[in-house]
Amino acid sequence: MPQQGEAPAATMARADFFSALVLVALGGGALLEALRMPRFEAIGANPYSVPGLVPGVLGAVIAVLGLFLLVRSVRQGGHRRGAAAAGGDAGGARLWLALVLTLGYAALLVGTLPFALATGLFVFAFIVLFERPESAGRRVRRTLSAAVEALIVAAVVTHVFEEFFYVRLP
């Protein structure tokens, strides 16, 4: 089965090495936390019904699977190579821009500003920052149309959700 966006094997081994470390830590952490969960012995709970049982088992399984991945990535040399070339290219810059805009909107603006205003600002900023018009004349037109779209989206989404679907907005 073809996979989209084949990364070079070395980069993948490097990425696997780090993700395996995270997985082992996560699984091990979950196991330790599960062991610390209460066992309700005082109320005579059945020892097999304790809350920590399943998270503990799952944490252990994830840690073991992470170890398999770790061993495999080390065999492929994932631990040796210098920092893998990531970011810096055009795709990386676009990703960061998208992340800043979306997280800024959903985590900061929504809830602080009125919903319609936050949404309008986000849509406008997203379009203006991502579109790269070729000429100055086009730039004005694109900016205007972005403002129009932002207004429409903000108004329609707010109105439709509140009046039509009876959803309280943040």
């Binding site: 805009l101 979306t102 909107y105 849509v123 997203f126 379009i127 579109e131 779209e149 989404v157 959803v167």
Partner: peptide, 18 residues
């Protein structure tokens, strides 16, 4: 996509909240 994706993200936010 520059015009569509922000709208989708707004819907994701509202949808998750709703």
């Amino acid at each position: 996509r520059e015009r569509l994706m922000p709208v989708i993200f707004v819907l994701c936010t509202v949808g998750a909240f709703a």
